[in-house]
Design a protein around this nucleic acid. Sequence first.
DNA 1: AAGTTAATTCATTTTAAATTGAACACTAGT
DNA 2: ACTAGTGTTCAATTTAAAATGAATTAACTT
Lengths: 166, 166
Amino acid sequence: MSGEVGEKTGLSEFEAQVIGFFCDGVKMLGLPKSIGEIYGLLYVTQEALSLDDLVSRLGISKGSTSQGLKMLRKLGAVREVEGELGRRVYYEPDVELKQLVGGFIKEQVRPHLASGEEKLANLKAMVHKMPGDAKSDFYAGRLERLGRWSKRSRILLPIIQKFLGR
Amino acid sequence: MSGEVGEKTGLSEFEAQVIGFFCDGVKMLGLPKSIGEIYGLLYVTQEALSLDDLVSRLGISKGSTSQGLKMLRKLGAVREVEGELGRRVYYEPDVELKQLVGGFIKEQVRPHLASGEEKLANLKAMVHKMPGDAKSDFYAGRLERLGRWSKRSRILLPIIQKFLGR
DNA sequence: AAGTTAATTCATTTTAAATTGAACACTAGT
DNA sequence: ACTAGTGTTCAATTTAAAATGAATTAACTT
């Protein structure tokens, strides 16, 4: 038995399945399973949940949960809500696809694209320093093409966001 | 030292950097580094290369290379070209972004989306069998929303493809 | 300021994924 | 049908990523 969702003590079959759904989803996006578990449980739960609620219901460690919430906050996928009494923080999910995708693009996609463009610039500089022979012409052509890929991707992102925002 | 590109024997600094560029790229897409190395070397090389060429220049195993090429073929990211003499197969990269994205969507994205929709259908069935109380209404609402996410993603894919195809 | 509860950090452990390489399979040539 | 050259498969290993949990920090209470 391999792909189980924690010890899922006290999770209904329905809840466990929804959580599994989100685990698959975040895996596809290259995020850790725990992120899917946390967001998944928040998504199927009407009330806001605290870190300790998540730990005890999901049966995962406090450390994972804390880190998972940190990431989810950065992605704008959860928001903190006022805890009734005491200083405990409660979380609820942001359920707007627009927000979720926006956060993912901003935090995960754009940084990679940016570092790629940086590397590309370095490579172009390297080709410039080469003797201008047939091979360096070939290289220049290939790099130019990569530049076009990068540019298109950059243009595409806001289109995606616009499409998903209503 | 951690993020090195193979033993890169006989790879020029320029080639190694281009390969690194593609390694980062495929990592972002959740594909193994070896895929990036193979495609990367094909991308910076004017001549078509055989499996053995890739093995010896990249310093990775035959097994990885064979599996990597298999995946790249399935993605439509490389094509076989006639080997001069002998029965050896030579590969060159498909450098059209349209093709690459199309293959990735077809092979990696659509299957996940499809299995997600399947799971969603199961969940909807589960809610139907529940007593019609406030909680099941909440569940139904959340599942409906997931359905909209899924539908939108499905509609978005061809838009992306159209945008990237010229 | 000592005590209490909540949350974070991070060195270690665990788990999952990718890589290896030897055995196997296919094809062509002799 | 044997041999040599190519390519694939898959059990075992390695590597990278994620999870754990004890120690630490922060925030509040009395």
